[in-house]
Design a protein around this nucleic acid. Structure first.
Length: 665
RNA sequence: GCUGCUGUAGCUCAGUGGUAGAGCACUUCCUUGGUAAGGAAGAGGUCACGGGUUCAAGUCCCGUCAGCAGCUCCA
């Protein structure tokens, strides 16, 4: 258990409000935040605007457990506690306790920051010898000893010079640096228990011999002050609770979360795979997931077609020059795959679809009469991702964006944005995602006139209002080329993922010198709207698997119905029902193999098939079927025709839930 | 890319430097069963890959690839 992960496998890497550094294109992969000041308690930092790694901030608002019942934290938030101090205080104190134990076991260790975080704590440190996971048990033991021996926690105030001298004498180089991060007007305090004294603002629990329960969970590397150019320290993650029950509930919850991991479900249900032979970050969709994707695509295209979108298709490979003009080569060349030389001309695999759509636009003169143009493409793009970040279907090197570009006049912008937002709502609602929308405004470094920004922001706001979407403000979080709205969806476990994004772009039209002829006969510059709704099919479906825990709604399920004849002589009837359903396009698994019925039922359950139809002598004679919906052990007998009606309704309505079948009816 | 860990049958995992293992899945036979694993037998392996140490390597060492957790990054 000591190696249990500190948090669910698909953690929270993508969810925080993004800030685009540059672009001229749409990035469906949400971004992590740039470093911002943070109030999380750090030894020597505390609420003092110290830079600390992003993880602790993200965790504080995104860790799934914060959204879901998990022990004592659930009802009233992380700081609710039945103990004498808030949980965050306890955890901060336990991180000190851990540091003191490490110091005693590994003399010469240099310490960095060690704050409490949403569901526990960590401490960063540089040890003479690298720690291994098996060392955690030993450290826990030492922690218990120290807590008993020197329980009293004491706060002392030192002058800045005294603090630095003290820490320098101990060769605590990171701590010395930490002193300088504390604003001039703040006092310097140390918190100590026994021999151990740590630069820290506090607060802490009064005594370490109170009853509490903790566990060290995992080891990781973390750059000092979150900067990859600085040394990498070792980080120990742990958690603590006032009661044993709460700790156990938390650990059980971490285990339970693993069961919804899309990688596990993907293997169990034969949905997708990745292969070392093909390279990391390339997803292979198996037939069972292929049908899910196809259903989503069909739905997606329908919703686009009725809103005036037109399909376009663009090549996967283009001359490098194209990406030089767009600016991506210059700004993001390191994320593009290496050039291919074809007859001495460098070509590139496309990292995004917009330059291709622009070429179509540019192919002939455009009139205001044509605008707005709404072009959509399920465009597969390839981006190099560092080996350490590739993750299941959620962070990959090749993925299909549900990409669209709208070319419009400044006057049309507001309506176009409203239309996109309405579409976002329609599509995300269809999957049962609720979302939070963020309006990202002009960053410090930006191009474009102030009034165009104002108009675009106004358009985004009015569009949101029209679509009934509340916006949270992400001040200064826009792309340099224009403002945007990002949508983050929550999966069933409360984890937030950015999927949709709507971006106004004043940059690419300039770079490619796009024009249309206006009513006055003059050439004018169109505005481009980049938008993705699902983001990437890979990520969307990966999140979707977790959202449903592998239990797809009827319209999406790989197998919608399993027909199970009780005996072999009922197989003809089973095959007849199967054929009738398949004729209507339903996906049916006719389980007429001679294995035992219970075994086939078990198998259908493992695949999370929405309905089992169990048919025997009685059913064959009466033209009925015994319907057993997923997740129940009940069965309802009904005429097959009635089941067929039910299935048609479920499919047509794209219902997210299976109906309650009352045995009475 | 960085820190730590991991890689043995389709899956989940045992395996002390000395002949490659289990459960489930799979195949065959038996079982004709009314709602969460019927019985028996069989097949399945270059122990991720490449070097090295050793009389002997799944086991120890180095490298590569891939995966896990985290950090950094993500047009």
């Amino acid at each position: 258990m000591s190696t249990a992960p500190a948090r669910p496998p698909i953690a929270d890497r993508f969810q925080v409000r993004g800030r685009e550094a540059a672009g001229g294109g749409l990035d469906s992969h949400p971004r992590t935040p740039s470093g911002t000041a943070c109030d999380v308690g750090v030894p020597g930092g505390g609420a003092r605007r110290a830079q600390i790694p992003a993880s602790s901030r993200r965790r504080s608002d995104m860790d799934p457990a914060s959204q879901v019942a998990s022990g004592a934290e659930s009802a009233a938030g992380a700081d609710a506690s039945q103990g004498p101090f808030p949980l965050s205080t306890l955890r901060h104190s336990v991180s000190h306790l851990m540091a003191s134990a490490v110091e005693r076991l590994y003399p010469g260790t240099k310490f960095g920051f060690g704050p409490s975080i949403e569901h526990g704590f960590y401490y960063d440190m540089e040890l003479p010898e690298p720690l291994e996971e098996k060392d955690l048990k030993r450290i826990e033991k030492e922690m218990r000893r120290i807590a008993k021996q020197t329980p009293q926690m004491v706060c002392t105030e030192l002058s800045r010079d005294e603090a630095k001298a003290k820490l320098a004498a101990q060769d605590q180089t990171y701590k010395v640096e930490a002193v300088d991060l504390i604003p001039e007007d703040e006092t310097i305090t140390f918190w100590s228990h026994g021999d151990w004294a740590d630069l820290c603002e506090g607060p802490h629990v009064d005594r370490l011999d109170r009853e509490f329960h903790f566990k060290l969970l995992s080891l990781a590397g973390a750059y000092w002050r979150g900067d990859e150019k600085r040394p990498m320290l070792q980080r120990i993650y742990g958690t603590a609770f006032w009661t044993k029950e709460d700790l156990e509930a938390h650990l059980a919850w971490l285990e339970q979360v693993k069961l919804s991991d899309h990688r596990r479900i993907g293997t169990d249900q034969d949905l997708f795979s990745v292969h070392a032979e093909a390279g990391a970050g390339f997803v292979f969709w198996h037939p069972r997931l292929g049908v899910v994707r196809k259903e989503i695509e069909d739905f997606w295209w329908h919703e686009h077609r009725v809103r005036g979108y037109q399909p376009v298709y663009t090549p996967h490979v283009s001359r490098e020059d194209l990406f030089a003009v767009s600016g991506h080569l210059e700004n993001y060349g390191e994320m593009m795959y290496a050039p291919m030389d074809i007859e001495d001309i460098p070509y590139r695999v496309k990292p995004m679809n917009c330059p291709g759509h622009i070429l179509i636009y540019q192919n002939r003169g455009r009139s205001y009469r044509e605008l707005p143009l709404r072009w959509a493409e399920l465009g597969t793009v390839y981006r190099f991702e560092k080996s350490g970040v590739v993750h299941g279907m959620l962070r990959v090197r090749g993925f299909t964006q549900d990409d669209s570009h709208i070319f419009c006049t400044p006057d049309q912008l507001a309506d176009e944005i409203a239309g996109v937002l309405e579409l976002v709502r329609t599509i995300l609602d269809a999957f049962g995602f609720s979302f939070t929308a963020y309006l990202a405004t002009r960053p410090e470094k930006a191009i474009g006139e102030e009034d165009i920004w104002e108009r675009a922001i106004d358009a985004l706001q009015r569009g949101a209002q029209k679509a009934g979407i509340e916006l949270e403000l992400d001040e200064g979080g826009g792309a340099f080329y224009g403002p945007k709205i990002d949508f983050k969806v929550k999966d069933a476990m409360g984890r937030e993922w950015q999927q949709s994004t709507v971006q106004c772009d004043f940059n690419l039209p300039d770079r490619f010198d796009l024009t249309y002829t206006d009513t006055d006969g003059h050439k004018k510059r169109p505005i481009m709207v980049h938008r993705a709704i699902l983001g990437s099919f890979e990520r969307f479906v990966g999140v979707l698997i977790e959202h449903f825990s592998g239990k797809f709604p009827f319209w999406l399920a790989p197998d919608q119905v399993a027909v199970i004849p009780i005996r072999e002589d009922h197989a003809d009837y089973a095959r007849e029902l199967t054929a009738r359903m398949e004729r209507e396009g339903f996906r049916v698994n006719c389980m007429d193999d001679p294995s035992h019925m219970n075994k086939r039922i078990k198998h259908a359950q493992g695949d999370q098939t929405p309905f089992m139809l169990i048919v025997g002598e009685r059913e064959a004679a009466e033209g009925t079927c015994a319907v057993r919906p997923r997740g129940t052990r009940d069965q309802v007998d009904m005429p097959f025709e009635r089941f067929l009606d039910l299935a048609r309704d479920l499919r047509a309505s794209r219902a997210l839930e299976l109906p309650n079948l009352s045995p009475a009816t």
